[in-house]
Amino acid sequence: MAGRKRNSAEEIVRKLRRADELTAAGKTQEEIAGELEVSAATLYNWRRSYGGMDTDAAKELKDLREQNTRLKRLLADAELEKDALREVGEGKILSPAAKRRAVDMLVETTNISKRLACRAVGLARSTYARTPIAQTPADPDAALRADLRTYAREHPMHGFRRAWAHLRYDCGRSVNKKKVHRLWKEEGLQVRIRHPRKRAGISSIPQIDADAPKVVWAMDFQFDSTIDGKAIKIASMIDEHTRLSVLNIVERSITAERLTTELGKAFALWGGPPLVLRMDNGPEFISHVLQQFCGDRIGISYIPPGTPWNNGHIESFNNRLRKECLNRNHWTSLLEARVVIEDFKDDHNNRHRHSSLGYRTPAEYAARCTHNHQAVDGCEID
C-alpha cells in the first residue's frame, strides 16, 4: 500500500490558490478536492491553518483587530501623558516662556486642566495668564527684534552671528552677541541647513555593456507588504544580456550579510559569478561586506545617484514584477509571497517571450547564445 503523500507548505499554498480559482469557476468542494487529489477534510484543515476563513470568522477577526488597535491607541495616549508629566517633573524647563509652552502642550495633548498643567510644570497661574512683555508695545527690544526680522528676510541663509556682525560693524550698534542669539531664537529665525549624506559608491571598473551572457548582472530591491501592514523586501537580479532572473530573496529585512550569502548560492547555481555587478547606491550595495565579498574577482559598477535609467534592465523587470504580480495579489503571509514571487520569476525565465530576444524566452536564448565578451579600451575585464 502506497504511503500517504505529505505536501510541503509551498505546495499547500499553491493548491489553496488553485482551489480559489476553481471555486470562482463554480466547482463544488468535492470536485475541487478530487482535482487537487486530496480529501475534503484535508482541504478544510489547510484553509483553517493557512488563512482560509469563512465570512463569520473573517468578520470576527476584523472586529478583534479593530478593538486591539483602539486599545493600543489608548495605551499609547496614556504612556504619552505619563512621559510628558515625568519630563516636566524633572526640572529641565527653566524659563517662564518654556514653561508656558509646556503648559500649552500638556493641555492640548493630554486634555488636562490648566490648573493641573501649571502645577506639574511649576508655573504660577497668574504668570501663565500674564502677557509677556515681548508681546506688548512696551517691549524695550522691539526695535532690535524688527531689525533682526528685516535682516533675516534679506539674508535667509545667514545665522545670528552674521546678524550680530552686521549690527555691530555695519550699523555701529553696540549690542551683546548673547542677546542677539536669544532674540534670534525667540523670533524663530533659525535656519537648519540639512546636509544630506552622500552615498555614492566607488565603482571598481568603468561602465560596460552586456555583450554576452554572464558579463553584467543588474541587481535592485523593491518593497511590498502583507495584509497586516508588515513590510516585504524583494531582491532581484537579472543577466542584462539574456534577461534571465538569477536571484530571488523575499524577506522582511535583507542585510548585507544575507545578500552576500544568497549571491554566493546564485553564483554556484548558475555556474559561477558574472564579470560585473551593476547596482544603485543603496546602503546594502555600498557596504564593506559586499565590497569584501566581490574583492578582485567581480567588478562593481554603480550608477550615478538619482539616475535609475542607467540601470534600465532591472528597472524594467521590477516594473513587470510590480504590475503583473505584486499589484494583483494580497499577501496573507510571507510564505505566500515567497511562493508566488518565485513562481513569477520561474515563469519569466521559461515562458515569457521577449521581443528583444527574438520572441524567445530567456532560458531558450541563454541555451542557444554563442556571444563572447569583447574587451574594450580602459576596461580591465577580458
Score class of each variant (00 low, 15 high):
residue 282 G to M: 11
residue 174 S to P: 03
residue 169 Y to S: 10
residue 198 K to P: 05
residue 248 N to I: 05
residue 156 P to H: 01
residue 10 E to L: 10
residue 273 P to W: 02
residue 74 L to T: 04
residue 237 M to S: 09
residue 69 T to H: 07
residue 222 Q to Y: 09
residue 243 R to C: 00
residue 95 S to V: 05
residue 18 R to N: 11
residue 198 K to R: 11
residue 286 I to V: 15
residue 154 E to H: 11
residue 181 H to W: 09
residue 7 N to I: 13
residue 218 A to G: 13
residue 34 G to L: 08
residue 311 N to D: 01
residue 237 M to V: 08
residue 50 Y to A: 03
residue 340 V to K: 12
residue 182 R to D: 07
residue 259 L to C: 07
residue 132 P to Y: 11
residue 132 P to E: 14
residue 76 A to C: 02
residue 321 L to S: 05
residue 163 A to T: 03
residue 218 A to N: 08
residue 368 R to W: 08
residue 11 E to L: 14
residue 56 D to T: 09
residue 362 P to V: 00
residue 338 R to D: 07
residue 193 I to Y: 06
residue 77 D to V: 06
residue 87 E to Y: 14
residue 185 K to S: 07
residue 140 P to F: 06
residue 294 C to A: 15
residue 65 R to S: 06
residue 270 W to F: 13
residue 370 T to H: 09
residue 263 L to M: 12
residue 105 M to K: 15
residue 41 A to K: 13
residue 199 R to T: 10
residue 188 G to R: 15
residue 114 K to C: 10
residue 60 E to P: 03
residue 102 A to V: 07
residue 33 A to V: 01
residue 355 S to D: 08
residue 115 R to M: 04
residue 202 I to Q: 12
residue 147 D to C: 04
residue 224 D to T: 12
residue 285 F to H: 06
residue 23 T to Q: 12
residue 348 H to N: 06
residue 254 I to K: 09
residue 25 A to P: 00
residue 194 R to K: 08
residue 142 A to Y: 06
residue 73 R to D: 08
residue 319 N to H: 14
residue 39 S to C: 08
residue 278 R to F: 10
residue 24 A to N: 11
residue 26 G to P: 01
residue 325 C to D: 14
residue 342 E to K: 11
residue 80 L to G: 04
residue 154 E to D: 09
residue 168 R to C: 02
residue 28 T to R: 01
residue 247 L to Y: 04
residue 345 K to S: 03
residue 39 S to T: 15
residue 101 R to P: 07
residue 351 R to G: 05
residue 334 L to W: 07
residue 285 F to A: 06
residue 59 K to N: 10
residue 99 K to S: 05
residue 74 L to P: 03
residue 73 R to Y: 07
residue 170 D to Y: 13
residue 144 L to M: 12
residue 96 P to N: 04
residue 120 A to M: 11
residue 292 Q to L: 15
residue 361 T to F: 00
residue 25 A to T: 00
residue 236 S to V: 08
residue 140 P to Q: 04
residue 245 S to N: 11
residue 326 L to W: 02
residue 80 L to N: 09
residue 139 D to S: 06
residue 94 L to Q: 09
residue 61 L to F: 10
residue 291 Q to V: 10
residue 306 G to P: 02
residue 223 F to M: 14
residue 164 W to K: 02
residue 116 L to V: 09
residue 28 T to N: 00
residue 236 S to M: 14
residue 250 V to S: 09
residue 104 D to N: 13
residue 262 E to H: 15
residue 56 D to C: 14
residue 344 F to I: 11
residue 69 T to F: 05
residue 162 R to H: 12
residue 368 R to K: 09
residue 243 R to D: 00
residue 53 M to S: 12
residue 243 R to I: 00
residue 198 K to D: 11
residue 215 V to N: 04
residue 15 K to G: 07
residue 331 W to A: 03
residue 321 L to F: 12
residue 59 K to H: 11
